[in-house]
Amino acid sequence: MRKVWYKENPALLVEMKEEIKDDFPNLHFYESNGVIVVEGSFPIRHDKKSLDRYSIKITFLKDYPKSIPIVEEVGGRIPRTLDRHMNEKGEACLFLPEQRSEIWPIGSTFLEFLNCPVHNFFLGQSLVERGEAWPFGVWDHGVRGIRDYYVQLFGTEDMDIVIKFMLFIIAPKIKGHWPCPCGNGKRLRGCHFPFLLELRDKIPRNVAQRSLQFLLEAKSGKRKLKDNLI
């Protein structure tokens, strides 16, 4: 069996502790039941001043850094509701998994994780708590957010075309002489080939696969696009 990440690569854990200790002296690492967790208070800083603080817990699963750390608000301040993008376990949903490579690609540091998606998420919470809008917008919940993301990405509302594109992301390989999924009659080579090759690098296959599954279920009526929440 594969060892957990911090036993396989103890240097990474040492590095993580070292890199955050000046900026986040109140976050501490613990080992608990074979996983590493970080607990303490997280400041929303601007101009070296903290504007607000949240009590948080971050869990690094066994397959870190492949998996995205789980971020929880443990102070009981943020309601576990759809509008606040917290599930009922109190886990934050920082971003769409599809966007990971833009936001926090594999190989990025824990400090970058704290300073970008975690900072943005809690900064947004503080504004929403004060009746303001989400500063950078939000994705719609569940399958609707996934649909919106791919609709934007492929520039079409035609779900059949969206699904064809997604199949080309998931396929083990794609070839230039295949017809392009955009439906303009050209071959891939003279059309969306470079675009798709880039996406295949960017979006992990299992992520696209899961999203496609949701979209197909929504299309067939098994999963409703509306009113399926709570």
Partner: peptide, 21 residues
């Protein structure tokens, strides 16, 4: 807080994975 938001270099949008609880 708004000033802090406007100085964010890489904005991120939250989502919600309702499959997870």
């Amino acid at each position: 807080l708004k000033v802090a938001a406007s100085s964010v270099v890489k904005p991120t949008k939250p989502w919600l994975d309702y499959e997870k609880g």
